[in-house]
């Protein structure tokens, strides 16, 4: 099983990439050059800063020049290097990378308030990448419990629970998301907003898993060992948790991995339209809300960087999910690809 997973090179690569991304999120306080709320109004949409090694033909420690704000003939902001001031880079101070004050350095450019995009991406990863994990944990638990109960008992209980799932699945996801978000008080602080978004996303996400788990439980409960467990006096709950649900893991682990991107995208979508994480806190979605105007993208294309990271993490989770599904259910693959011959 492990061997099949690790034979998939893309999956291994994706695993490494995700590891790096989560590592960055964890150590954002150290890795990010600035704080996520470190504003510099004079540097609005400042392009990525060039790092120089050579001054007047002589090699020296890396440094950046100061930045001059000018306006072009259309009265648009243009930044130029101010060769008169030199700010050396500082390594491994309070942060891994910094620059001597009052100089500023933007590795990936600045946003509208002159905040460093790279720093905000690193801090934003904390929200964007964890929301998927926590959300999936909640909806996974809900889906397993509801699916397990519906499948094991069958009959009326099954009917009620499954109709509930269908009502949830019937509503178009994004509008349901908006409706639920609208039901949340608007005076919440950022932590409360974060958790309300997690809960909203998982409330929407559990129904699909519950339905599949229920189908599997319907067949699993007919197994002899379930009857045997009953003759030994185990309670229904013990039977569901110990003898039925463990047999659905192969499916559910892969399903969980494949559903994480949905949470990342859901959070991004909410934050993009301003209903998610609020400024000054960074999430990849709310950073992108800056990029909703085509003029701004044309003028400062680097504000699209968060989209790249969303793309990267979503692809990674999908690749890992696919590989897990193949590894956990080798029969499935054989039937679909080789068994046809």
């Amino acid at each position: 099983m492990k061997a099949i997973f690790f034979r998939n090179r893309f999956a291994v690569m994706a695993l490494w990439l995700l590891g790096v991304l989560y590592g960055c999120a964890l150590f954002a306080d150290f890795l990010a050059p600035y704080s996520y709320k470190d504003e510099a109004r004079g540097f609005s949409y400042c392009p990525p800063t060039a790092v120089h090694w050579i001054e007047n033909g002589r090699l020296r420690a890396p440094f950046v020049y100061g930045t001059k704000l000018m306006f072009d003939e259309f009265r648009r902001r243009v930044y130029a290097e101010d060769r008169s001031s030199i700010y050396p880079l500082e390594f491994f101070g309070a942060r891994v990378l910094g620059v001597a004050a009052p100089g500023r350095m933007y590795v990936l450019g600045a946003d509208s308030r002159g905040r460093d995009i790279l720093s905000r991406i690193l801090y934003g990863a904390r929200i964007s990448l964890t929301i998927g994990l926590i959300g999936v944990a909640i909806s996974f638990a809900l889906g397993l419990i509801v699916g397990g109960i519906a499948g094991y008992y069958g009959g009326r209980i099954d009917n009620i629970l499954m109709r509930m799932c269908e009502v949830l699945m019937m509503a178009p996801g994004f509008y349901l998301l908006l409706a639920l978000r609208a039901a949340v008080p608007d005076n919440f602080n950022s932590v409360q907003v974060y958790f309300s978004i997690v809960i909203i996303l998982s409330v929407i996400g559990w129904a699909g898993l519950a339905r599949v788990v229920r189908g599997m439980c319907l067949s699993l409960r007919e197994r002899d060992y379930v009857l045997a467990a009953r003759t030994f006096g185990l309670s229904d709950l013990q039977i569901i948790v110990r003898h039925i649900l463990p047999h659905t893991v192969a499916y559910s682990i892969a399903a969980v991995m494949l559903s994480i991107p949905g949470y990342i995208l859901g959070e991004s979508a909410l934050s993009l339209i301003g209903l998610g994480i609020q400024d000054p806190y960074a999430s990849w979605g709310n950073m992108l809300s800056d990029a909703m105007s085509i003029v701004r993208i044309q003028f400062a294309p680097w504000i699209l960087w968060p989209a790249f990271f969303i793309f990267l993490s979503v692809v990674c989770f999908n690749v890992i999910g696919d590989a897990l599904r193949d590894a956990l259910d080798p029969l499935l693959k054989r039937e679909t690809f080789e068994g046809r011959g």
Binding site: D224, Y225, L227, T231, G233, R242, P246
Partner: peptide
Amino acid sequence: MRVIRGAKIGMAFQEPMSAFDPVM
């Protein structure tokens, strides 16, 4: 009945292979 089953009345099945949970 659950108190009686297993504790007072034990049961053994025809197919021990399928009467044991394969993952435990």
